[in-house]
Design a binder for these strands. Structure first.
Lengths: 225, 225
DNA sequence: GTCTATATAGGGATAGAC
DNA sequence: GTCTATCCCTATATAGAC
């Protein structure tokens, strides 16, 4: 039963972090939810930070998978869509991390270093993809434009969920969108992911050839709020 | 001395929030720093949240000022630079808010509503400016492109400081940039602001006419990392 | 207005029995 | 492995004297 409990702790912790935000979830809450004692929890993990670290390790593995590029050929737009989906779904599954990114990273040097490395690898991936698209003639951009656009792709992707959460309330009335379910945490919803992907694609739209640019803008129409 | 103490509490709180992050600053810390008793602090403010609300109100006033558009004429690129400077400086002065944005807003409905409204106003301002640039012939973009680009301008601006903080560590070595001063909070530094402004400008660069586009890209060169 | 003292609560974490 | 019991510490907030 040991292995199973440790695993359950990780699963439930992740779910609770995502639902309520990591700073708002205590070890007691986790133990409660699992119907185990706090002491038992501390048998499996030194402390709460240790739980976060274990979850983060899985996140890193998952994200590295998502960042893999098509091998041995130049990328096309389809590849970009697919990769963005993988990345956004990974971010979604570990959204607690993005919700309180600075706070979480500032309390843990190791996490901070690892996250910085992930960003570096992501930056490489983006640059490679954009460079590949340019080489394949799908987009037309200077290397400086690619660099700057890549950085913006990284930023928009990283903070899309937060932006989406804060931007959820569009109308003037507070009531308009407050009819969200359960946990008054105003977390973004899964449907926001697709919109985020379009928002990223629109960053590179200006560099597309006319035909693709028009096509993309047409697709994006459907996701106007 | 009453007025002065209340004012000093607000000033010191803001400084400490910015330096250490709002969640890491307690009412006791603030009282300590001011050399007053915790009881005294609670004479002036009902609770910590109340302090945050007062500071937020000033932030909102300041940001509204920064969002004002040139009156009675079409905007030009100079106006955009100026406005971005005002906005980024406002964000800098109240950076604690952006550091833990979701966490802070999720604990206070009023703040959340107000921040959403500020974003709405900012969105209008951005759309107006971009529309004005288009009308003046400075940029060339469809209204859909303006809308999408405007949203990205908002996002990049809102989260630039966070991105900058997390991205500060570029090299592989953890030591490389860890020689930052004092408070191991990895807050961004003021010089990052200028870079953020360029990063935003590069969002609209693709829509500029060739001459200005080249000019902007040349300027931006200086801010490559 | 300001202080001292204190109430209350909750979270992190450990010891030791089972 | 798991539980019970508990300790320590810190944060918020209040009461009442000065």
């Amino acid at each position: 039963m040991a292995r199973q409990t440790k695993e359950r702790i990780l699963e439930v912790s992740l779910a609770m972090f995502n639902a309520r935000g990591e700073p708002n979830v205590t070890t007691n809450h986790i133990a409660d939810e699992l119907d185990i004692s706090p002491g038992n929890l501390y048998y499996h993990f030194r402390n709460k930070e240790n739980i976060v670290e274990h979850i983060f390790a899985r996140y890193e593995t998952r994200m590295d998978q998502a960042l893999l590029l098509p091998d041995g050929r130049l990328p096309n737009l389809e590849d970009v869509w697919l990769q963005l989906h993988l990345v956004f779904e990974c971010m979604w599954d570990y959204r607690f991390l993005y919700r309180d990114l600075i706070d979480i990273l500032s309390r843990n040097r190791k996490l901070k270093v690892h996250f910085a490395r992930i960003l570096n690898r992501a930056a490489s991936a983006v640059t490679d993809v954009l460079g590949g698209l340019a080489k394949a003639g799908v987009i037309r951009a200077t290397s400086d434009e690619i660099r700057a656009t890549g950085e913006n792709v990284l930023l928009v992707t990283t903070f899309w969920l937060n932006f989406s959460a804060v931007r959820a309330m569009r109308g003037e009335s507070a009531r308009t969108t407050s009819a969200r379910a359960g946990d008054a945490q105003s977390m973004p919803e899964q449907e926001d992911l697709t919109q985020g992907i379009y928002q990223v694609m629109l960053l590179i739209a200006p560099f597309l050839r006319d035909a693709e640019r028009l096509h993309l803008n047409t697709l994006a129409q459907a996701y106007k709020r």
